[in-house]
Write a protein that binds this DNA or RNA. Structure first.
Length: 1148
RNA sequence: AGUCCCGUAGCUCAGUUGGUUAGAGCACUACACUGAUAAUGUAGGGGUCCGCGGUUCAACUCCGCGCGGGACUACCA
């Protein structure tokens, strides 16, 4: 333990950062902080794994500061916070980056016919290396920004043990029957022969405006019981439903129509070009898109075949729900889709924005179509191929399937070869066939024309709309059904919502809004990805797809392979060296569960057939969402103590993870454990540049976290990010704000400490004396202690409520406004000079406590400087056993020390002082010039007592000798009255305006009378109104003839007369000031004694004579005298424009 | 297109259950103070509280409709 509190020349937070990091290393502070105190137990935190294949940015500092601050706070509170680090290593971004680096595309991987062929093994090897490319940078940032996360044994998602846990989870789901194979409509590029991720679809330039042929088709309603009401009073034989499509090539695959449940539909009769009257149904709102409003009055009888204006008549109106289940004839009879097709459904996606308000449904070519059809038991139009597979009417090259490719039996039963043969084997978009000239008619046109000829098309039009294109081939994308494995998350929807309602979201709206809504509209989770670098799906299937096996562990796989070897499907066992039950890294490195190795494993089915692994990988979001289990290698390890690490008490990530990590965590925990996986969550917003633009390397506006930390240190950066705005609001990052935090908060705190250490060292204060009881300390000490306890209470509550911003702002406000700007400023004289008495000791103890507590309160957000401050203090006093703020327990607060009326009194003192200083300025009288008195009107004795308690503080602060109270009886006061709306409002409501007018027009006499009577009668609009004294606010506004200031209820008047007596004292004070400056410039020590000689000048003579003792005591001068002859060390000083010589000499 | 967030001084942000002079810091201007001094105080200018409607005696605050910025999801006849 040192002897002196360290004193510094300046504040270099960047240097502090480095020094503290060293101290933490030397003392192993982080590891020692992972402990519990007083049986508090564990606080569980999950680290959302970053991907180390990108460079960390300033926004990572944001998210990690939040995580770190909460974890540090809980540690300070005595909890054990383990916080295991992790790396996200799989996924498309990694693969794309490697493709780019190697100059290849997906088609080159594992494709021997490609010129740039690379084997899957080599590709994955490249991914494995690439994904950890920037690990060093990340670890460096973690360290420098002070993010305490345990990087000793991070979980890595490509580790076989991690994958094994995933497989176990998948098997649980499989056995629950919620892991199933189905198909879904996905963007697919026939030209590239691959499915596209939504990410690829969002690449710039993918959506292009294209001109397509659109067609309004007429679907003929079948007249039966369900539709009979539609035919009521009908004038034509046929009734048609109108539906619009921009892709007529999907019409042959139509199997249903969808209407909006609450949309109104009308029945319209009219004469089309054929002059044969027909009747159609469409949305009421869209009637005039097809039937001109101006033709409303025309009559059928007047119509002649050549007329351009077609008369029409609305003959009925229905709600969408009425049309449900109405059946219609197939529009194009090429292929029979089977039972249940061709009926009207209701769909929430149907709008009346364009088209007819009725949507043509082709379940094989639209995601909505597929979903609504499945929900209503409507079959998709599927064809059976020669190879036994099933698929839509369009093959993967983008052509209508040739009859020759179809299964003979299927053709015989379901295909109309006469009508279909005109169209078979044609591409659905001309772009797919390089031989076709772009001018050639599209199949859309051919189909539309055919329908027109059959009287089944109402209207054919060209239409420009935006349509996605493949970013590799530039050709249009097709929405196409592809096989995929799903998790039936919809089966858990209610439970997911229920559990979500128990989670404490910050901000709440993200939980109820964005996340809650997402859960309500949940769809099944498509797990399949046709890629290479990821967790393989552990499912093996026989060729006829009749038997499946889902593997849930390495040992199970090993055993299954043994069976397969016996059956002759495998020659050797790749897992032969693997020892079951040995969870070491070495044991798990004896094989690889990635592709291509798992693809080379063939199993044997129960009936003895060869089984192949399903080639898909799983969605990488499953990797991260499964981390609560997989980071623990559960259930192969940690089975018994799993309840100690699940669920998490707290997680935090960017709001962009709402549908990513937050969802997958929640979904997996709900399905596997019927539990939330996190109880509290902060989702932070984006970090934008100072102009509110997104940061990007391309724009050059990205802020490099390393540079910022090097320049300012982490603390100002962290403090700025936390206090500038609530973390869920986007942060407009402006480095000048960091600088401001540095000066304003840390600079002030540092100055306060410097002040303390300077004098504490002079007096050898080491907090070795007993605490002076708080009630024996002066008013101002009790005041700051009261505020300090209020602060501890507020900050504790905020941290507990995960509200870092409020906590930080409260601390900052306390330090800059109350501690530094008021407490220290008013108390300076108590610290210098004088005896080391009880009052001085109280001052030291009070200030010490404030500084130490502030260090502890700030530690979660500003771990570095708070550590410096804490150890500088505690290193001398040894009041805490652990000499680290992060190991010491978070301070408690004492309600009994919080004195609201004391805080109120001090508030009066602060306000009055500032008002008087304002008055001084107005009349240009310096504070150094003492003044005789102030006058204060006192409305009641209560106020007088309060004022009296802080009188001395005020008088000292504003340099005035006395205060005179003016009570009510004095008539010199000019009063002002204001209605109190808060009390009057509820009582009188509508009369408020009148009352306000009446009250503000009171005369002085009326106000005084009101005050004396305590009530006042008014007559407003003939109604009697009785005002009580609480219904108004009366303030003394002015004292004629005086300098007066008002603020709220407070009024003060200042006597600005400067008598000779006052003037002499003023001059004496000027000398004190000048001599102090001379001392300082001469470099004297604070404790050096001096001798002062002042030139005998008429202007100063009397002042020096009278106040030489005072001057001496203030400047540590043993002698202060007037002298006619000055020689050495002479300085000239100017006081009120008079120049006087002064000699200051250090005593020997 | 849907869902959510944000919009208050030149900039960054506060603003309690609705209550009548809308605040702070930064920046700017002027003047002070200072043995905490790369600080500090006082004063000043600076506002369509995004717009329009509604509820109310009273709206920055509550409701509705828009506008602008952002995020996520989707891209559909």
């Amino acid at each position: 333990m040192g002897n002196r509190f360290p004193e510094y020349k300046g504040l270099d937070l960047s240097q502090v950062n480095k020094e503290i990091l060293k101290v933490w290393d030397e003392n192993d502070t982080f590891h020692r902080s992972i402990r519990e105190v007083n049986g508090k137990g564990e606080f569980v935190f999950y680290e959302g794994p970053p991907s180390a294949n990108g460079i960390p940015g300033i926004h990572h500092v944001m998210a990690r500061t939040i995580k770190d601050a909460i974890c540090r706070f809980k540690t300070q509170c005595g909890y054990e916070v383990k916080r295991k680090a992790g790396w996200d290593t799989h996924g498309l971004p990694v693969e794309l980056q490697v493709e780019k680096a190697l100059g290849i595309t997906k088609e080159d991987i594992g494709n021997k016919s490609s010129a740039k062929h690379i084997s899957v093994e080599d590709f994955n090897k490249a991914c494995r290396t690439d994904v950890m490319k920037y690990t060093d940078l990340w670890e460096d940032l973690t360290r420098k920004m002070g993010y305490w996360v345990n990087m000793d044994h991070p979980y890595v998602t490509y580790d076989n043990r991690y994958i094994e846990s995933l497989w176990w989870l998948l098997k649980q789901l499989y056995e629950k029957g919620v892991l199933y194979q189905g198909y879904t409509i996905q963007p697919y590029s026939p030209a590239a022969g691959t499915g596209l991720s939504s990410h690829e679809l969002n690449l710039p330039g993918c959506y292009k405006d294209v001109k397509d042929t659109t067609c309004v088709a007429l679907f003929r309603v079948i007249r039966d019981k369900k539709s009979e009401f539609l035919f009521h009073d009908i004038e034509t034989n046929d009734l048609h439903i109108m539906a619009w499509t921009t892709t007529p090539w999907t019409l042959p695959s139509n199997t249903a129509l969808a209407v909006g449940r609450d949309i109104r539909y009308v029945r319209v009769s009219f004469n089309p070009y054929t002059a044969e009257p027909i009747t159609v149904i469409l949305a009421k709102e869209l009637l005039h898109s097809y039937f001109s409003e101006s033709n409303t009055g025309l009559h059928f009888s007047e119509y002649k075949p050549a007329d351009k204006k077609i008369p029409y008549k609305v003959t009925g109106e229905f709600a969408g729900i009425d049309l449900k289940d109405v059946e219609y004839e197939q529009l194009i009879d090429w292929v029979n889709p089977g039972e249940g097709a061709f009926k009207v459904l209701t769909g929430d996606f149907v709008t009346t924005e364009d088209g007819t308000g009725i949507v043509h449904i082709a379940p094989t070519f639209g995601a909505d179509d597929y979903r609504v059809a499945r929900e209503n038991g409507v079959p998709p139009l599927i064809m059976k191929r020669k190879d036994g597979s099933f698929g839509p009417m369009v093959d993967k090259r983008g052509y209508l399937v040739p009859i020759a490719d179809l299964d003979d039996e299927f053709v015989k039963k379901n295909v109309n070869t006469v009508t279909y043969s005109d169209f078979e084997a044609k591409p659905v978009k001309n772009e797919y066939d390089n031989e076709i000239s772009p001018d050639k008619e599209t199949i859309d046109v051919e189909i539309a024309v055919m329908l027109k000829q059959q009287g089944k098309a109402f209207k054919i039009e060209k239409h420009i709309h935006s349509y996605p294109h493949c970013w590799r081939t530039d050709k249009p994308v097709l929405y196409y059904p592809l096989d995929a494995w799903f998790i039936r998350t919809t089966a858990f929807r209610d439970r997911l919502i229920e559990l979500n309602n128990t989670i404490n979201w910050k901000p709440q709206s993200t939980g109820t809004g964005r996340f809650g809504k997402w859960l309500e509209n949940l769809v099944d989770w498509n797990l399949s990805r046709s890629r290479y670098w990821g967790t393989p799906l552990p499912i093996w299937v026989t060729e006829d797809r009749k038997e499946e096996k889902c593997i849930g562990s390495a040992s199970e796989l090993k055993a299954e392979i043994e069976k397969s070897i016996k059956a002759g499907y495998m020659k050797s066992n790749p897992l032969k060296d693997f020892t079951e039950g040995d969870n070491t890294e070495v044991n798990y490195q004896k094989f690889d569960l990635h592709r291509p190795f798992v693809d080379e494993i063939f199993l044997v089915s129960n009936s003895g057939k060869k089984m192949f692994r399903e080639p898909d990988l799983i969605d990488v979001w499953f990797d991260s969402g499964a981390m609560p289990y997989a980071q623990a290698h559960y259930p192969f390890e940690n089975k018994e103590n799993f309840h100690l690490m699940f669920p998490a008490d707290f997680i935090a990530e960017g709001v962009d993870q709402t549908r990513g990590w937050f969802f997958t965590l929640h979904a997996i925990a709900t399905m596997i454990s019927d539990s939330v996986s996190f109880k509290n969550i902060i989702s932070n917003g984006l970090v934008l540049d100072k102009n509110g633009n997104k940061m990007s390397k391309r724009l050059g506006n990205a802020v490099d976290p390393f540079t910022a930390i090097e320049e300012y240190g982490s603390d100002p950066l962290r403090w700025y990010m936390i206090t500038n705005a609530q973390p869920w609001d986007n942060l407009k990052f402006d480095i000048t704000g960091v600088d401001e935090v540095k000066r304003k908060f840390f600079g002030t705190l540092y100055n306060t400490y410097s002040f303390f250490s300077l004098y504490a060292n002079v007096d050898n204060f080491r907090y070795s004396e007993k605490d002076i009881p708080v009630n024996e300390r002066p008013e101002i000490d009790r005041w700051i202690i009261s505020l300090l306890n209020s602060l501890v209470r507020e900050v504790t509550n905020c941290y507990n409520d995960y509200d870092l911003t409020r906590a930080g702002r409260a601390i900052q406000d306390f330090v800059t406004e109350n501690l530094s700007n008021w407490y220290v400023r008013l108390n300076r004289k108590r610290y210098w000079g004088g005896d080391y008495d009880k009052d001085k000791l109280a001052a030291y103890q009070t200030l010490y406590t404030c500084l130490e507590t502030v260090a502890q309160l700030s530690a979660p957000v500003a771990p570095f400087y708070s550590e410096r401050l804490f150890t500088d203090l505690n290193g001398i006093t040894g009041r805490h056993k652990e000499n680290s703020v992060h190991l010491a327990l978070f301070p408690g607060y004492d309600e009994s020390l919080i004195d609201k009326s004391l805080e109120e009194r001090m508030d009066i003192a602060q306000k009055v002082s500032s008002m008087i200083l304002g008055l001084r300025r107005k009349v240009s009288i310096k504070v150094r010039q003492p003044l005789a008195k102030i006058m204060v009107p006192v409305p009641d004795n209560n106020f007088r007592a309060k004022f009296e308690a802080v009188k001395d503080l005020i008088l000292a602060e504003v340099n005035v000798r006395e205060v005179e109270y003016i009570d009510d009886t004095a008539s010199i006061l000019v009063k002002k009255i204001k209605p109190n709306f808060k009390t009057l409002g509820p009582k009188y409501g509508k009369l408020m305006k009148e009352i306000a007018n009446a009250v503000s027009s009171f005369t002085s006499q009326e106000i005084v009378a009101f005050e004396n009577n305590k009530s006042h009668k008014l007559s407003i609009n003939g109604q009697e109104v009785i005002l009580s004294i609480d219904d108004v606010e009366i303030i003394s506004e002015d004292i004629p003839g005086w300098q007066v200031a008002n603020e709220g209820k407070l009024t003060v008047a200042l006597d600005v007369t400067v008598t000779d007596d006052l003037r002499y004292e003023g001059i004496a004070r000027e000398f004190v000031n000048r001599i102090q400056n001379i001392r300082k410039e001469a470099g004297f020590d604070v404790t050096d004694k001096i001798t002062v000689k002042i030139e005998d000048h008429e202007f100063v003579r009397e002042a020096v004579k009278r106040h030489s003792a005072y001057i001496g005591s203030q400047t540590l001068a043993t002698v202060v005298e007037l002298s006619a002859s000055l020689d050495a060390n002479v300085r000239e000083v100017e006081i009120d424009e008079v120049v006087v010589k002064v000699e200051v000499r250090k005593n020997n």
